[in-house]
């Protein structure tokens, strides 16, 4: 025990796991004691067996949600980086367009999702657009911030050595922006998932194209609370997985040099 407590890495993993298991046990016991009905709060064991029972249905829904999330995430990163580079190249463009990026960011997606779904025939495309809109802003703002926060001394050095605009961009601005960009990725990947779930709620596409959010909605209507929890669990795990992937990517890219990623 002492050894584990002293090992920071092991503790980081073991401590939250123990806490989680303890909470699940308490939850199970509380329901057993209070005899709360399953249609209000199901115990973890029931949720688990429901997950196994509905595995086929839920995983195919998970795939749909993942498809929307990942497509939107890729779109957001591509568009976001492109916009950030444009803004960084032209001050006029940034000054005239950035306020609208902010408007886009502060407008609640639930409020405009119905419009998008009416305007765009293909439900999948409509949902991807919604999720992209949610995930876009952190990429734009972080990448711009990064492209602009270049060490002035290094900029002078590049100028002294007659670096071209392109050389300065590739060899100086892009690496300087990388830590900010990866910070943006972390936020944006989570937002893409949230955007996908919201879009699914609004679109309400069922049948073979039903995503996890639709399953949650349906389970609610049918008072199939264990399935609702099982779907919820999958959404959460997806979000966590995305986060972990982004952290790993960032570590791979910056691990050698950036303060935030240097493990001691």
């Amino acid at each position: 025990m002492e050894a584990i407590m002293n090992n920071e890495r092991a503790m980081r993993f073991i401590a939250p796991t123990l806490f989680g298991v303890a909470m699940l046990l308490i939850w199970e016991v509380m329901i057993w004691v209070t005899q709360a009905p399953v249609y209000l709060v199901p115990p973890p064991s029931v949720i688990g067996s429901q997950l196994v029972q509905d595995w086929g249905l839920l995983t195919s829904s998970l795939l749909i949600t993942l498809q929307i999330t990942l497509t939107a995430f890729v779109c957001a990163v591509t568009i976001g980086v492109a916009v950030a580079f444009l803004f960084a190249q032209s001050r006029v463009l940034e000054v005239s367009l950035f306020p609208y990026a902010v408007v886009l960011q502060v407008t609640p997606i639930v409020a405009i999702a119905p419009l998008i779904i009416i305007w765009v025939d293909n439900a999948f495309v409509a949902m991807v657009i919604c999720a992209t809109l949610v995930a876009l802003f952190p990429i734009i703002s972080n990448t711009i911030l990064g492209l602009r926060s270049v060490n002035p001394g290094l900029l002078a050095l590049f100028r002294l050595n007659k670096a071209t605009r392109w050389q300065t961009l590739i060899r100086l601005r892009v690496p300087s922006a990388a830590p900010y960009f990866f910070g943006g990725l972390r936020i944006s990947s989570g937002l893409a998932l949230i955007g996908a779930v919201v879009a699914e709620f609004v679109a309400g596409v069922g049948g073979t194209r039903a995503g996890l959010a639709y399953q949650i909605l349906q389970s609610g209507y049918q008072i199939n609370i264990p399935r609702l929890f099982a779907a919820l669990l999958l959404v959460t795990l997806t979000g966590v997985a995305l986060f972990v992937i982004m952290v790993t990517l960032s570590k791979l890219a910056l691990g050698g040099w950036h303060e935030s990623e240097i493990s001691d």
Partner: peptide, 22 residues
């Protein structure tokens, strides 16, 4: 320069090579 102004993402050789690369 008065400060070292090295690129933190580049190793020593890469930093020294920079003006030649440019």
């Amino acid at each position: 320069f008065q400060e070292a102004t090295l690129m933190p993402w580049s190793r020593v050789a890469g930093n020294v090579r920079l003006p030649l690369d440019l």
